[in-house]
Structures are given as structure tokens and as C-alpha cells.
Computed example of a mutant assay.
Amino acid sequence: MIKLGLFSLMGLYDRNTSPASVIQTTLDMVTMAEDLDFDIAWFAEHHFTNHSICPDALMMVTRAAATTKRIRLGPCVLPLPFHNPLRLVQEVAFADLLTGGRLALGLGCGYQPYEFDRFGIDPRHKHDMVLEIWDILEQGLRTGAIAHKGIFFQIAPTELPMRPFGLDLPEIFAVSTNPAIVARAARGGHTPFMSFGHRGLAAALQKRRQIADGWAGAGGDPENMPLAVQRFIYVTEDRSEALHAVECVRNLSRAEHNLRGAAVDKDGPFVRLMPFHDEPPLDDFLAHAVIGGAEYCAEKLTAEIAALKPTHLSCFMGLAGIGRKETLASMERFGAEVLQLLEPVLKARGLADAA
């Protein structure tokens, strides 16, 4: 069954944007996503730049839990190398309690050298750290206790009073193409999570094949592999609004390119948005994103669902630089028009109840 997710990066567009307004818009979007029967709302975690003002996704999870009733909530991702696992397992267990069992977990490695440098962590070890912290996290959540001797962490036997034995493990999504991490997801029956990016369907299919190879290498069936796919989506019939949304997608890509470098070019906390090497023209960004009228968006998503075969569609709908009113109007069009047009596709794949 395919499920719909809402992803919130919570970027700060400029110095005239209020961080409080970013939080409120995000909460408004989560409320609307629940009204539209989305399955889950995801919150990013990043540090030290305006790329995202959210340094603790679990805090946003618990904040959103107070104003919602049904929608599941999760960090995407928890960059595991940045977290002390003994503290993290307590925070995750407590968040699961505060959400009434609605917690899901997106686990990842981190990708920004600036963050690793500021936390004093060698990024060469990040994949091994993720696997070890993942083991600790699952042990604590499954049993309510931890005892661990590993390469990076040694934890004496420790009990978790907020995590009684026998509770179900939150659903886990692994955001990585690293073969060892994909294999760990396959062995545990967890879901790989990939971002579509700005390069188009061919590049997305290549990434899917890379994940499927890791899945098969661990003995999983790549034909029946669960998969979450994230897409930029903005629904509007107005050409000028569509072009502005595409510029926001390009700005996001420029920021990410900058943040992947060894040295971040920034002005205070604001990442400079400079064109990157081999940057495609704006028309390519428009062609590769799901931005436009309802029929166009539905047709594009239909083709991508057929090609990528996701079980979870994560909708990145709150782009920095687009106002609250416009963002919510786009979401409303998505719920009222796009999902209705997608219904035959969802039914054909046995997925009708996702809409």
C-alpha cells in the first residue's frame, strides 16, 4: 500500500523571514496534511545554517503531536553520528510515548562536512557509526534496556523506564544508498528512502537500482522492495507562481551543493546561492520537478509511480521563499484535485486507500 508523507525542511529564506513564522507555517501544513489523510509528516534536522532552522526533529515531532490526532510523525532524518546513542534512545522512546505510538523514524548519516566539523566527528566513519548506533537504538526500543560493547560506544547495562518490554518498534526508514546500510534495512524489513532530487527520472531510476542492488545483496527481493521516494511538489495554474517555485527549487539545490563542499560559502548563517558546476538551466528544473497545474502534476506523478514503484510518496511542498498562503493553497489543490486524478493509478496498484 502506498502512503503519503509531508516533508518539512523548515528553511529560513532571508533575514526578513521570522523563524517563528516558519514553525507556524510548518504546523499549519501538518494540520492540513492530516485533514487530507496523509499517513505521516516528516521533519528534517540540520545545524548551523539557514538551510533549516530545526536542529532537533524530535522536538518538532512532539510539538506537532499536540495539535494533531491521527497522522504519524517522524524525523527525516535523524543524522545518527551527531547523537549520543544512550541519550538518543531515551529521547526516541519518550517521543513515542508523547505521540501516543505515532512515531516513525527516518535514520541517516549526515552529508554536510560543516556539521561534522563543528561536532568534531570524522565523516569517514559515519556509515560504521550509523550501523552501531542503529543497533543500540533497536536494542533499547525492543527490550527497554541496553548493554553494548562496540567500536565507537561502550554502554554498561542500562534500563529505560519509559520503554516497557514488548512495545512495537516504530517503523524505520533508511535514508542512504550505502550498501551496508541498505543491507541492514533489508535484513530488518525496513524501508529505504530516496530523494528524487533535481536531475530527472533517469537519475532517480539509477539511484533506485543502486538501492535495489544493496537490497538484493542482503538476500532481499528487489521486485518487492519497499521504497519511499521524495518529490518537490507545487500545484498552481499560474505560470509566474510556477516559475517562482522552480527558482526556489533551484535555490535549494544551490544551497545543498554549497553545503556538500569542504568549506561553506555563507554570510553569517545564510548559505550563499551561487550557480554550481554543470547546473542545468531553469527549464530543466521545471521539467524535472512536479510543479504546475493539477492535471500536469497528476500525469507526472503517475509516470514516476509506474517507473519507481514506491510504497511511500514523500511530498516536499513547503519551499523556502514561498509564502504561507501560497504554500497552503498549493497543498489544498493537491488534496482536492491531484489526488482525485491519481485515484485510478492508486486503484490499479491496489493503493486507493492512500488517497
Rank of each mutant, 00 (worst) to 15 (best):
A203Y: 08
A204E: 08
A204L: 09
L205F: 07
L205I: 09
L205Y: 06
Q206L: 11
Q206W: 03
Q206S: 13
Q206M: 07
Q206I: 06
Q206D: 15
K207G: 08
R208T: 08
Q210N: 10
Q210I: 10
D213H: 14
W215R: 07
A216R: 13
A216G: 01
G219L: 09
G220P: 13
G220K: 13
D221V: 13
P222K: 04
P222R: 05
E223F: 10
P226I: 10
A228N: 05
V229Q: 06
F232G: 06
E237N: 15
E241T: 02
H244L: 09
V249D: 01
V249Q: 00
L252R: 10
L252H: 11
S253G: 09
R254V: 00
A255F: 01
E256K: 07
H257Q: 14
H257E: 14
N258K: 02
L259G: 02
R260I: 09
G261C: 11
G261L: 13
A262T: 13
A262M: 10
A263C: 05
K266F: 03
G268K: 04
G268R: 06
P269E: 12
P269F: 05
F270C: 08
V271M: 05
V271C: 05
L273T: 13
L273E: 12
M274E: 14
P275C: 08
P275F: 06
P275D: 08
P275E: 06
F276N: 07
F276M: 06
H277S: 12
D278Q: 11
E279K: 03
E279P: 04
E279G: 03
P281M: 00
P281F: 01
D283R: 08
F285G: 01
H288L: 09
V290C: 10
I291V: 14
I291G: 01
A294L: 02
E295I: 07
E299R: 14
K300Y: 03
K300E: 15
T302R: 13
A303E: 12
A306W: 10
A307Q: 04
K309I: 00
S314V: 14
C315W: 03
F316L: 14
G318N: 15
G318K: 13
G318I: 09
G321M: 03
G323Q: 11
G323Y: 10
K325L: 03
T327C: 08
L328C: 06
S330F: 06
M331C: 15
R333C: 11
F334N: 01
F334C: 01
A336K: 14
A336R: 13
